[in-house]
Simulated scan of single mutants.
Amino acid sequence: MTTTKTTTTKDEREDLSYFTLTLQSFLNESFPELANDKTFIEERSELAAQTYADALLAGHTHPEASELSNEVLYEGLHFSKFDMLFKVICNEFDSQMPDDELRPFAMKMYPLCTDVFSKYSTNEPEFADSADYELLYTELTGTVAIHIEENGLW
């Protein structure tokens, strides 16, 4: 009987890293515009892994190291435009389509809403608590409603 030794390359290990998988899942869910940005994912994941290792070497506990690495992993990803659009669609249009169609519809609408989002400074961590958030919510609702009406979707 012959056995074959399989080796895992460094690239394959990195592809399967906890930080890469965690970030990829998060981006797929909330930041679809970044989900295919392999450079961003690789750089951010490597930085988070290094932060975790450095924190442990510095004497931090595993939970503390995890918290520090998560700060690095999710830096600048405070507010998800897609999540907001999905919330608008779920809250305002859920009676017009089956639940399993809400997310696919949001994915289709997302590129059509870039002009709406461009009018607001959504990068600020406190944006979700601002008056502009409510204005954006209303504008997104109108944009979706107009798209539905103009395209005879319901």
Rank of each mutant, 00 (worst) to 15 (best):
G76E: 07
P104N: 07
K87R: 15
F117S: 01
H78K: 08
L56Q: 04
L85Q: 06
E43A: 05
K108R: 11
A58N: 15
D94Q: 11
D83F: 02
A58R: 10
E67V: 04
S45L: 05
R44P: 05
P111E: 02
E64Y: 02
S121M: 11
S80P: 08
D100R: 08
F127H: 09
L73M: 03
E124A: 14
N91K: 08
P98N: 12
T39R: 13
P63C: 09
A55T: 02
P63F: 08
K119S: 13
A49Y: 03
C90P: 00
S95A: 13
P104E: 03
L68C: 10
F117Y: 11
A35Y: 02
F82S: 00
F93W: 05
T39Q: 14
E43V: 12
N91G: 07
N70C: 11
F105D: 01
G59C: 10
K38S: 13
F105Y: 06
R44N: 00
S66E: 14
V116G: 03
S45A: 13
P63E: 10
D115W: 02
D37N: 14
D54A: 14
E33Y: 04
A58M: 10
H62K: 15
N36T: 10
D83G: 09
E124Q: 14
R103V: 07
R44K: 14
P104Y: 00
V88M: 01
Y120A: 06
Y110E: 05
S80M: 02
L112S: 09
T122M: 12
V88N: 09
V116W: 09
Y74A: 04
E67H: 04
G76W: 03
F31Q: 01
Y120V: 01
K108I: 07
T39V: 15
M107W: 00
T61L: 05
E124I: 12
L34E: 02
E71I: 12
E101G: 01
E67C: 10
R44L: 05
Y110I: 04
A106S: 15
A58D: 14
C90Y: 11
K81T: 08
K38L: 12
F40T: 06
I89T: 02
T114I: 11
T114K: 13
A55W: 03
G59H: 07
A58V: 08
H78I: 05
K81L: 04
